[in-house]
Write a protein that binds this DNA or RNA. Structure first.
Lengths: 338, 338
DNA sequence: TTGAAAGCGATACCAG
DNA sequence: CTGGTATCGCTTTCAA
C-alpha cells in the first residue's frame, strides 16, 4: 500500500491538515518542531505526495498535451524540446502524441487528453485538418496553442514562422545572385499549408519583374523521394533553369541526390535551396543554403504562451506570435561573381 | 464547472452507480432504455469521464514516463516513436522527460513521475549513471525497463542491442575487405557504456590475429566535432592506417568532413565506418557503411515488456531482451577487388 | 498553531 | 436491473 498523508499524520500524532501544510510549505505560524518532525517522517519513508489526489481538488494537473504528426519528422524534436524545456521550468510535464497526419487518430488523442485532464494543449494539426477536431478544443474548453500549421481560427492563439517571408528571402537571394529561371518544388498539393511559401516565391519573382513560369513548378511530398522525383521531371523538361527552390530541406536533399546521380554539378550548373535548416543540410555536399525557422524558440514560446493563458496571468498576453525566418547562406547557390 | 457523473445521474434520474456502469460498458443485465437515455445525455454534454478520479481508485493512470537524455539526439525519436506506438495500442500515454545527461535533472524527473503516479517508466540513463538514481526506481517501486544504456543491475528488466557484436561485425567486414591497420574513434572516456563496442573491435582484431595498436585508438565525444578532431589527430600521427571505425555515426560524419577538408578520398584512400545508421549516413557522400540498431523495435518492445510487467501478465515474460545489430553496407569502405 | 470535516469525481461492493 | 455508500489521497475552509 502507498504511504499516504494519513500515515504521516498518525506517526507524527498530528492531523492531516498539519501535514498538508508542511507539504505545501504553508509555514506561516507553525511550530518549527512539528514541522521538523513531519519532514523527518516524510524523508524516512520516501514520501512523495500523489498529484492525482491534489489535482482532483486544485483542478490542475500541470500536464500539457503535445499533439503533432510525427516525432520522427526531423522538424519536431526541436519543437518538442523547446516546449519541454519551457514546461519544465514552469513546473509542467508533457504528454506526447503522434497523429501520423491522421485526423481519426488526432481526434482520439484530443479526447484522451481531455480525459487525462491536461491543463492545455499544444497542437500542430494534420496536413488536412478537419473542422470537427478544431471544434473539439473549444467544446472541451481546453486552452490550446496552435503551432506551425496554422488554421484560420479567429480566437485560438498561435505561433508560427512566416513562411511567405522566408521563401521570399531565399528566392530574392537567388535573384540577387543573378538567377532568373528559378524552378520550384512544392509540397503536398492537398495541403492548405505552405501555400504561403509558394506565395513568397511568387512575390519575390514579381518584385523583380520576373515572369512566373508555371512549367517550372512541381509538386512533391515533403519527402526525399518527392524531391528526387521532381528534380528528375525538371531535368527531363525542355525548360531552362539555373536554380531550384524547394519547400523543405528533405526535398532539396532529394533533388541534390538526383543531380549527383546525373553528374550535374551543384552549384556550378544548378543551384539548390532548401527550407527549414535541418541538421542534414550541413553534411550534404555542398551544404545547402536554406531558411532557418527558430524551431526551438517556437516550441519554447508556444509553451510559455500556453502556460500564461492557463494561469490567466492578467497582463493581456499577445497571443498571436509570428516569428521571423532567417536566411542561412551555405554552399548550394552559385553566386554572382563566383 | 465540469460536467460530472453526478450531473448525468441527476438529469437521467438514476444513481451514479448506474451511470458508472454505462461508462464502463458493464451492461450485463441493464435495461436498454436507461442505457440509451444515459448515453444520450453524455453525448449531449460532450461528457468525458475524468481519468483522475478513476485513477484514484483503480491505482492506474495508464501513463508511462519516458526518461532519456535528449530527444534532439537523432537516436531517440525512433525509440520514442516505437514506445509511443506500443503504448497507444495498449491504451497508454507517455510523458517525455529530457535529462541532458544530467543526474540532478534525472533525479528530479524520477520524483516527478512518481508524484504523477505513472504506471511505469522507460529509462535510458545518463552517460554517467549514479547509483542513487538507480536506487530510486526500486525504492519507489515503479516498474521500469532500461533501454539501450544498460546498467548492471541484477533485477531490472532491460532491452538493448548487442554493441560488442555490432562492432565486431563491422570490423570483421573491414578485415575481410583487406584492411589491417584499423583506427578506432571511441566515445566518451568517462562513460561506462559502449565499452562493449570497443570490446567488439578488439575481439575482431584478435580473431584475425591482428595486433592491437593503442596509438590508433582515439577518444571522441559522440559528437560531430569530436569525430573531426580525432580524425585530425589521426592524420597528424605518423602511424599508417587504411580504415577508421567510429563508435557512432555522428563522429564518422565528423571524420568524413575532416577528410574532405584535407582532400583525402573516401573510401579510396581511407575507409570509414559508423554506428547507428541514422538517416544522415544516407546523404553524406559517400554514404556511410554502418551498423543498424533496430531502434524503433527497441522502443516498441521496451514498452510492450513494461506493460506486460505492469499488468502482471502471468506468463513469465522474458525480461532481458538483447536485439541483434545489423551490418548495413554502403559506400564508405574500400572493398577488396574494387 | 492546530484539528475536524467537507468534498474533488469516479469505482466497487453490498443490498434490494 | 438499480441504488446507497464507503473510499481513493489530498486541499481547504472554519473553528478552536
Amino acid at each position: 500500500m502507498r504511504f499516504t498523508i494519513k500515515d504521516i499524520a498518525r506517526e507524527a500524532n498530528v492531523s492531516i491538515a498539519t501535514v498538508s501544510r508542511v507539504i505545501n510549505n504553508k509555514n506561516e505560524g507553525m511550530s518549527l518542531e512539528t514541522r521538523e518532525k513531519i519532514l523527518n517522517i516524510m524523508k524516512k519513508h520516501n514520501y512523495v505526495p500523489s498529484s492525482l489526489a491534489r489535482s482532483m481538488i486544485t483542478k490542475k494537473t500541470n500536464i500539457i498535451g503535445l499533439i503533432l504528426p510525427d516525432i520522427n519528422n526531423p522538424f519536431f524534436p526541436g519543437i518538442v524540446r523547446g516546449a519541454e524545456d519551457a514546461a519544465n521550468s514552469y513546473g509542467y510535464n508533457i504528454i506526447l502524441c503522434n497523429t501520423d497526419d491522421n485526423p481519426e487518430k488526432e481526434k482520439t488523442y484530443i479526447e484522451i487528453l481531455k480525459e487525462k485532464c491536461v491543463d492545455g494543449m499544444i497542437y500542430t494539426s494534420t496536413l488536412n485538418p478537419i473542422d470537427e477536431n478544431l471544434q473539439l478544443f473549444k467544446r472541451h474548453k481546453i486552452p490550446t496553442v496552435f503551432v506551425d500549421r496554422i488554421v484560420e481560427s479567429d480566437d485560438i492563439p498561435f505561433i508560427f514562422t512566416d513562411g511567405k517571408k522566408g521563401m521570399f528571402k531565399i528566392v530574392e537571394y537567388l535573384i540577387q545572385n543573378g538567377h532568373k529561371e528559378i524552378a520550384y518544388i512544392a509540397g503536398e498539393k492537398k495541403s492548405q499549408f505552405n501555400h504561403s511559401r509558394l506565395e513568397g516565391y511568387k512575390s519575390a519573382l514579381s518584385k523583380y519583374n520576373i515572369p512566373l513560369n508555371q512549367n517550372l513548378i512541381f509538386m512533391g511530398d515533403y519527402k526525399l523521394s518527392g524531391g528526387k522525383r521532381c528534380m528528375e521531371s525538371l531535368l527531363d523538361l525542355k525548360e531552362k533553369f539555373s536554380a531550384v527552390a524547394c519547400e523543405n530541406d528533405l526535398m532539396a536533399i532529394g533533388a541534390l541526390e538526383m543531380l549527383n546521380d546525373r553528374k550535374i554539378k551543384v552549384p556550378r550548373e544548378i543551384s539548390i535551396t532548401g527550407y527549414d535548416n535541418i541538421f542534414l543540410t550541413n553534411v550534404t555536399s555542398p551544404k545547402i543554403t536554406t531558411i532557418a525557422q527558430p524551431i526551438y524558440e517556437m516550441g519554447y514560446k508556444a509553451m510559455e504562451l500556453l502556460i500564461k493563458i492557463v494561469n490567466k496571468d492578467n497582463d493581456p498576453v499577445d497571443n498571436k506570435i509570428i516569428l521571423e525566418p532567417e536566411l542561412v547562406i551555405k554552399d548550394s547557390v552559385w553566386k554572382r561573381g563566383d
